[in-house]
Structure formats: structure tokens, C-alpha cells
Design a protein around this nucleic acid. Structure first.
Lengths: 149, 149
DNA sequence: TTCGGTTTATTCATATATGAATAATACAGG
DNA sequence: CCTGTATTATTCATATATGAATAAACCGAA
């Protein structure tokens, strides 16, 4: 990667960069940044791509609550995200006749296409990252990350 | 840690969690989340703590531009963050007579105390993380992270 | 069947970020 | 000394998040 991290908001890393905790935070943000940059040209953000991807994977419309669960965020966030996705023409809200409280998000054709284009870009970033981490012990890395979460 | 990740906005992790890229993003977010939770009781966010810490480390007032550089973010962000820190009584804006364009941020007594309390909490989280990562190869992890950034 | 608790989405207030536009100041070179 | 360019902070519009409050709809138990 070797891109400058332009999104380390707190900017804490102690006296040296070797502090593991902040390195992990910064690494995560650096990758997010790369993904955002890769998605920008096709008109997506990481948040939007995430929502579209869950809808594609589900293969059917999902209620906004289900979306919130899959994206591990609060529902008011999904309300807003869907507003933007709907404004972009990538998603359509449909009412659920079974449960009139529920609103489902359905992909539009454009939404499906956009997600597919996004997936290609994400795969590209992922391949870059794999190459970057080529020489290192990925097993150790995976074990560490799964210990954290 | 083993706290549920309640802040994985995109929520993408593919079919399995083994996808390194999203694991890294999620690990970073999980740690951020722990830090936010640790700082909340003392009235700080990670962003606020970061700003205070840079001021403490500098040992003197810093211009808002210098703060933005240290925190690797745009200046309009610092303007807003300083507004909130000033409202909290943790920082004071002082005009620079040498350069009348410049506004410097100076720690208040309360700001210094709050940062110090925050640093203790951060150290606690850091110690927890160290313990979590006890069994794993931290050298490999460090090398991986420095490769990414 | 009505009542009360739960779930649904939305709205509102707020925090944190970006980036563009603006205004004031500095400063170098003619 | 002007003049143009750069730098400074701020403001504005926007995106992404949280959490509290609200309204509508559902559902089980009395």
C-alpha cells in the first residue's frame, strides 16, 4: 500500500509507531481509506458498498432492521443510508404487506451493477494487500486478529 | 477483549471471517470502540483525547494547523473539535501576536487533568490488549502492520 | 377483545470526519 | 510600496455514525 494515512483522526501513536494498539487502529483505517478511494470513482462509499453487498448476498429484499443487524449498527443509521442509496437510485424501499411496520430495501438494477463494479475494486485492493503481506506470517496475523474480536 | 463489535458500519466480512482485510478493519474498530468506552466515563472521546495528548506532548500551545498536521486531518475538523474542547473547558484559544492569522490551542488546568485521567484508561486498555495477544507472535504482527502503512 | 409491552422505522440532536469557498493576514519580488 | 500568491482559520454542505424520543403496528395474556 504505502499510501499516506490521511484519516488518522486522533493521530495518537505515542512516542514511536511501534505501539501495537495504535498501529492496529491505523492499519485498519489505512485499509478503509484505500477502499474508499477505490470505490469513489464508481460513486460508492464503503458504507454504501457494504449495504448493497448484504442485499446481493441475501438474494432478496431485507428489512431495514435486518440490514442494521448485518451491518452491526443502529437503525437510524440505516434509515439515513437508505435515504442516500435511494436518492442514488441504487435501492428501492418497499412496504411489507405481512407486517406493516416493516420497510424492506430492494436492489435496483443499477444497485446490482454498482455493487458488482464495487466488488471488483474491493478485490483489487484485497489482492494488493495480500501482496503487501506476502513475506509475513499471515497465520500469526490471523490468530492475532481473531483474538482481538 | 471479546466485546461485541458494535461499530462495524459496513459489516462486510465475506462468507467467513477469515478475510484478512476485513478482519484488520474490524480489529481496528473493535479497539477504537474499547477506547471510546474507556474514555466515556471521564468525559472524553478518542478524538478529544488525541488532541489533548498532542498538546500535552508538545508542552506548549499549538496552532490549529499544527494540530491538524499532528492528527492527520483537515483543518476544518480541528476548528470543530476545538470548539467542543473549548466548550468543555479543556482548551483555550489564544491569538498569536506574531502572526495574526494564527490561533493557538492552549491546555487549561482541567484539560491537563482530563488528559492524564484519559491516559490511565488508555494504558489499561493497552494492557488488556497485550494480555489478549500474549500467546501470539507479536513480531509478525508488528511487521505486518508496518508493511500496511 | 382490549391492554400493555415489543418491535418497526423515522426524526432529532449531536459527534466526527471531509472538502470547497471565504476572509484575513503574511510575505516575496517587481 | 504594491501586488500577487500562499497560508490561516472559519463557515458551509455533506457523509457517516450514535442514541433518545416518537408513532405506528404487532402480539400475547387477561
Amino acid at each position: 500500500m504505502n499510501k499516506p494515512n490521511t484519516r488518522n483522526q486522533h493521530g495518537i501513536s505515542g512516542k514511536d509507531d511501534r505501539q501495537l494498539m495504535f498501529s492496529l487502529i491505523n492499519a485498519g483505517r489505512a485499509i478503509e481509506q484505500s477502499l474508499e478511494e477505490a470505490l469513489t470513482p464508481i460513486g460508492l462509499s464503503l458504507a454504501k458498498f457494504g449495504a448493497l453487498t448484504h442485499l446481493v448476498e441475501a438474494g432478496e429484499p431485507l428489512s431495514l432492521s435486518e440490514c442494521a443487524k448485518k451491518m452491526t449498527c443502529v437503525r437510524s443509521n440505516i434509515t439515513q443510508l437508505m435515504d442516500r442509496l435511494e436518492a442514488d437510485g441504487l435501492v428501492r424501499r418497499i412496504k411489507d404487506p405481512q407486517d406493516r411496520r416493516t420497510v424492506k430495501a430492494a436492489l435496483t438494477r443499477l444497485g446490482r451493477e454498482r455493487q458488482s463494479a464495487g466488488a471488483k475494486e474491493v478485490a483489487r485492493v484485497q489482492a494488493e494487500l495480500r501482496k503487501t503481506l506476502d513475506g509475513i506470517n499471515q497465520g500469526a496475523l490471523r490468530r492475532a486478529l481473531s483474538a482481538i474480536m
